[in-house]
């Protein structure tokens, strides 16, 4: 039996096909204005990879901001629960999940106490401020005139980290512009930005009771620079990084779909 998990985020859309023995196929697409169309395309791509057709999918769960716009999904669950379930599936000792997405960042606390498996006990999300989200990096990449995907590798070449002290996106933008004018290396500035984002996200995580192990999820975790800074800030706790951090929510959704179809 196969189930599908569809995660429609503000930046990207992911679909995971789950079968006996694990993930059979997945896809990642940029989210388009037409959410439904993107969701269809992503589903077909993932099914192609799994060599399956739509009729093979017994149940599907949609999550993410566009979750209510996926007409083929049987049920909608928030990305908070889905990321937690996905992270727990990949790393069963996970108790805290940190997810940095395009427009939201969140920290989730999980428990496995009780008879019926893992469940979310507490969570925190960013407020209207974009400082700890993928959006923040996007704005800064534009100011620095670099590809957002290069930010991670570039930051690793940093020799002298620059302190970006501003917590506010608007202030940080002006701070970065001054730094560019002062002829600081882009690499060093980027490294500083990664620290700033890690600090901001940490302020969310701290509001929960942080338990080990901590699993990092979400598209921004593809950025090695951010991951490194988070590891430093959270040290010495045990940190897990999934191979494909951005599909964890979709994995969680597919897992929940399996649960629903069985119950």
């Amino acid at each position: 039996m196969y189930t599908a998990g569809i995660d429609i985020g503000s930046v990207s859309t992911e679909v995971v096909i789950l079968g006996e023995g694990g993930v059979k196929g997945y896809s990642v697409l940029d989210s388009q204005v037409d959410i439904e169309k993107t969701a269809e395309e992503a589903l077909d791509m993932a099914l192609d990879m799994a060599r399956l057709g739509r009729k093979d999918v017994a149940y599907s769960v949609a999550t993410g901001y566009g979750r209510n716009n996926v007409h083929y999904a049987n049920k909608q669950v928030t990305e908070i629960t889905c990321h937690a379930m996905g992270a727990h599936y990949l790393f069963p000792n996970t108790r805290t999940i940190i997810d940095i997405g395009g427009q939201d960042s969140k920290a989730v606390a999980l428990t496995t106490d009780g008879p019926s498996g893992p469940r979310v006990v507490d969570f925190c999300m960013n407020d209207k401020c974009a400082a700890g989200t993928g959006r923040f990096l996007e704005v800064m990449a534009r100011v620095l005139d670099v590809d957002i995907k290069e930010m991670g590798p570039l930051s690793q070449k940093s020799t002298k980290e620059i302190n970006i002290s501003s917590m506010c996106t608007v202030f940080a933008e002006s701070e970065v512009i001054s730094l560019i004018h002062q002829k600081h290396n882009k690499e060093d500035i980027i490294s500083g930005l990664h620290t700033a984002i890690a600090r901001k996200v940490l302020s969310l995580v701290q509001r929960l009771d942080i338990r080990e192990e901590v699993t990092l999820t979400g598209g921004v975790m593809k950025n090695v620079g951010v991951v490194e800074k988070l590891q430093q800030e959270l040290s010495p706790r045990k940190i897990n990084l999934p191979e494909e951090p951005q599909i964890v929510g979709a994995i969680g959704a597919a897992l929940l779909a399996r649960k629903y179809v069985c119950s």
Partner: peptide, 11 residues
């Protein structure tokens, strides 16, 4: 308007 220490110096 600023934060506790001047971050937005250029501005």
């Amino acid at each position: 308007e600023a934060e506790n220490f001047l971050t937005n110096v250029g501005q």
